[in-house]
Design a protein around this nucleic acid. Structure first.
Length: 876
RNA sequence: GCGAGAGUGGCGGAAUGGCAGACGCGCAAGAUUUAGGAUCUUGUGGGUAACCGUGGGGGUUCAAGUCCCCCCUCUCGCACCA
């Protein structure tokens, strides 16, 4: 009995069914291999968007596929639920952040459910709830114990809009804005001098760098970004004695990666923030000018000041240092491009061989001395147009005393050694990576479990007093400062050490702390003794496949790698790296519509008249704008809910997997969605029409006997082979789905060519197994319709628990070969031969081909190339 | 500037060095329908043709979208890191 495809009914039926039967709940199982499939958990902003649909569709196909391949799959979901929007909602609407967050979680959970995702909801985590954040606090305390969390005073990035400190990773470049901007609100970030909590991520810098080599299944560009962010460089620290040294500053220590050029150091430069500056200038006539310069430079935010194209500026301190290699007295300058945080905050300046020093020296007419000559020997000291920054073997040392004549690499080595034997300094390694400033002056975050006691100083909250709960009695005013300061119940506390009065830390943790270890919590989400049960972690870790956006290439992924190493050192997990494979999916984009009168407009506010698109309000012609990431402001949003209402979750999933390879941007197309919907309807109808034919027979996998059977089985098994191959190799969902479409097209053709009446039992059985294979292959992509049709064709157990079909190589091969014939590499003809025909026979047949003879024009081929089953090429 | 990636029909995109353009969209014709929509079938890189076609130019090869060299364009990331 044929039925029409009612996606609403089918989808809600199976969603309830999966839930009621607990189909996706997973336990550790020693009998089958494990697979941990994880997508980056969402921030509960209110509703899911197409980006969510895409990433979760990708993860769900992986999880379902791996399950069918015989793995027991951990596929959890949770909420990255702390963050500023909840607090802003509290300020604007008077809703408590917790209420706002929990409502959003409930709503979005129901939306995710509608997508038919195979999550084990029993493992759900929510970072904003005490049963989670107590363990973030616990980890923090362990890090304090190990010196990995500490307080220091320093210049920090401050977002004036969010009124909080930001980590370096959270300050981003922004087109059209002078300086770095906040990763969340895009306000220009300023510098503030504050005492703050930091994580000593730099202690793991080398390991984080080395670990990149293990991550062979990560996208190259993510690794490149991580390596660059860590920024290791090898060099030498060298003391330059100060002339007429005063007691407090006898030498200036510099860091250089080019010790080979030291004989060319004709001046020094200090960072404006360096305390050495004040010590050197005190009492000198230059002091005022220097102070003015320093004040002017430090007013600028860091990003502006350090822009590469910024003019080199500086001021002479009046002091001199001694180049230890030449004994020359060289002037000490303060320069705007020297960074206090990098190296020692002081450099030796070699204008001949460093572009910045070159520009600086030209500006202030400081001598330039050539100490590396190029291999051709053509460099003339007085005629340099740019610094000669030759590396490694390219040049040779000149004007360098006993070191002259050495190669660059040789010179580096020799001078480095000389510095050490003379006791002038040491060879060392420098990193660009800075410690992670992780305290935030906000309410809706994990409270930092520390106290300030008048007697004992900084005190940890004892472990048995965790969690430090967020207080309820906090007014949300939107005014600056930490809201927790204003909670009387929270701030005042008794010191656990001396019993005196103490004040609680009122800062909360950066939300990136929460997401740095959630993947471990999923292993044992209900553990009440520790953040993660080491046995559970041993079973499940590492995450085999991680899926998420490229925007976290540095931030989240670097922090998560750091935390994994910390928790490993605490004995909670045994893995060094959390994520084995990483798939960074592209953005979901859509065309934008622009009306001169009404600016960005919704597609629904436009109409098509005579092939032109007009604004419905003002009748102006709509300009089709750039295809951009979906955003509310550009009004180029497609709504997952409308999509599910109209076409169903299966269509939404299918389209987001089919329209582009997963790592590329996906351009949303309403007609493309319809194409996918059409395909599912075709599948439905195919099965309905076939059902009557094979209802009473069992499927077969035996060798075929009739032409129809051969064709049906070949199409089916070729598709099994192709889909399996596409999924195993880099998850090429788009081509996998294309081959499923091809199979359906082929089966329709075969059905048309061989009417269903009068088929043999064998042929019916062949049809049955073809349809079953089709449904099994479709299952991970469009699970609801696959379940429904699976049930309709007489199966009692879920298709999600069936083994993945295996292709039979014997059934894939064809009984005849079509061999292209080329002349000089160009296709000129084709011949059809029986499968198994030998090379000589094929060449003979080809030579008998009329078209080929025309092309040969009586000549004999100089050479004949035959590629087994592929082609013949005659070279004349 | 440095790093990563990309450039193929009207569009999204396929092609272990071996038939370029799978699959889908769009478009066209036909069938069905009172009409529209929906559905189905067929066709669809360009050119009347010989032929020409994967950003441009060289090269390797019997054979290049694919490998090598040079160049151009675009996207993303980092940008004075001594």
């Amino acid at each position: 009995m044929a039925q029409t495809y009612d996606h609403q009914a089918v989808e809600s039926k199976w969603q309830s069914h999966w839930e009621q039967t607990g189909l996706f709940q997973i336990k550790e199982d020693a009998t089958t291999p494990k697979y941990y499939c994880l997508e980056m958990f969402p921030y509960p902003s209110g509703r899911i968007h197409m980006g969510h649909v895409r990433v979760y569709a990708i993860g769900d196909v992986v999880a379902r596929y791996k399950t069918m391949r015989g793995f027991h799959v951990l596929h959890p979901m949770g909420w990255d639920a702390f963050g500023l929007p909840a607090e802003n909602a509290a300020i604007e609407k008077g809703v408590h952040p917790n209420v706002w967050t929990q409502e959003n979680v409930a709503y979005m959970k129901q939306q995710l459910r509608r997508m038919g995702l195979s999550y084990d909801w029993d493992r759900e985590v929510n970072t904003s709830q005490p049963d989670y954040y107590r363990w973030s606090q616990w980890i923090f305390l362990k890090m304090v114990d190990r010196g990995l969390a500490y307080r220091k005073r320093s210049a920090v990035n401050w977002c004036p809009s969010c009124e909080t400190v930001l980590a370096n990773e959270q300050v981003l470049a922004h087109e059209g804005k002078d300086g770095g901007v906040c990763w969340r609100c895009e306000s220009v970030v300023i510098q503030k001098e504050l005492e703050q909590w930091f994580f000593r991520i730099t202690q793991y810098a080398q390991e984080l760098l080395d670990g990149c080599d293990q991550l062979t299944s990560w996208p190259a560009r993510v690794l490149a970004m991580q390596r660059h962010w860590i920024g290791r460089s090898e060099g030498v620290e060298i003391d330059f004695p100060v002339v007429d040294a005063r007691e407090d500053v006898t030498a200036i220590r510099i860091f250089t990666t080019r010790p080979d050029t030291i004989h060319g150091a004709t001046f020094m430069s200090l960072a404006p923030e360096s305390p050495l500056v004040e010590q050197l200038i005190a009492g000198r006539p230059e002091a005022d000018a220097v102070r003015q310069f320093v004040a002017r430079v430090s007013r600028l935010d860091k990003a502006t000041r350090t822009a590469a194209d910024r003019e080199k500026e500086g001021v002479f301190t009046g002091a001199y240092a001694i180049n230890p290699f030449t004994q020359e007295h060289i002037p000490i300058w303060v320069a705007n491009f020297v960074l206090y945080e990098y190296g020692t905050g002081a450099i030796m300046a070699v204008p001949a061989h460093d572009q910045r020093d070159f520009e600086f020296a030209n500006q202030y007419t400081i001598p330039i001395r050539l100490v590396i000559q190029n291999p051709e020997g053509t460099l003339v000291p007085d005629a340099l147009e740019a610094a000669y920054e030759a590396q490694v073997e390219a040049g040779a040392l000149v004007n360098s005393g006993t070191f002259s004549g050495r190669s660059v690499s040789d010179g580096k080595q020799a001078i480095g050694e000389h510095v050490e034997t003379q006791g002038w300094g040491k060879r060392t390694v420098n990193f660009r990576l800075r410690d992670w400033g992780m305290a935030r002056q906000r309410y809706w975050g994990t409270p930092i479990p520390m106290l300030y006691c008048d007697q004992c100083g900084i005190v940890s909250v004892p472990e048995d007093q965790l969690p430090v709960l967020l207080p309820e009695d906090v007014p949300f005013t939107g005014k600056g400062g930490s809201p927790l300061k204003d909670s009387p119940s929270f701030a005042k506390v008794t010191c656990p050490t001396c019993g005196g009065t103490a004040r609680r830390e009122s800062d909360t943790m950066d939300t990136f702390v929460d997401s740095s270890w959630y993947f471990l919590r999923y292993c044992s989400p209900k553990d009440t003794q520790q953040p993660v049960n080491p046995d559970a972690a041993k079973h499940w870790m590492a995450v085999d496949q991680y899926v998420g956006g490229i925007e976290h290439a540095v931030l989240h992924l670097l922090y998560a790698r750091f935390f994994t190493k910390v928790l490993r050192d605490l004995g909670l997990t045994t893995v060094d790296e959390p994520f084995v494979h990483l798939l960074t999916q592209g953005m979901v984009t859509k065309e934008t519509y622009w009306c001169e009168e009404h600016r960005w407009v919704l597609p629904s506010d436009t109409k098509k008249v005579d092939g032109q698109r007009l604004c419905t309000q003002c009748e102006r012609v709509i300009v089709i704008g750039r295809t951009e990431k979906m955003s509310k402001s550009k009004k180029n949003i497609a709504s997952p809910e409308e999509l599910c209402d109209r076409y169903g979750a299966d269509t939404a999933r299918l389209f987001s997997l089919f329209a582009a390879p997963p790592e590329k941007d996906l351009e949303w197309s309403d007609t493309g969605v319809e194409g996918c919907s059409r395909f599912l309807h075709r599948v439905w109808r195919l099965v309905q029409e076939q059902r009557a034919v094979f209802e009473e027979v069992q499927s077969t996998s035996g060798s075929a006997s009739t032409a129809l059977l051969v064709a049906v089985q070949r199409a089916t098994h070729q598709t099994i082979q192709k889909v399996t191959h596409d999924l195993d190799r880099d998850f090429q969902f788009n081509t996998a789905i294309a081959s499923l479409m091809e199979l359906v097209n082929q089966l329709y053709k075969l059905m048309k060519d061989s009417p269903l009446e009068g088929l043999s039992v064998d042929e019916r059985a062949g049809w049955r197994s073809a349809i079953e294979c089709l449904l099994l292959l479709l299952g991970p992509f469009a699970p609801h319709i696959a379940e429904e049709l699976w049930e309709m064709t007489g199966h009692a157990t879920s298709i999600a628990r069936q083994p993945w079909p295996v292709f039979n190589p014997d059934l894939v091969v064809s009984d005849e070969w079509t061999i292209p014939i080329q002349v000089n590499g160009k296709l000129r003809s084709k011949i059809i031969v029986q499968a198994g025909t030998t090379k000589d026979q094929i060449i003979a047949t080809a030579q008998g081909d009329d078209k080929l003879q025309e092309w040969l024009q009586g000549k004999t081929a100089r050479k004949v190339i035959y590629v087994e089953q592929k082609m013949v090429n005659f070279v004349i």
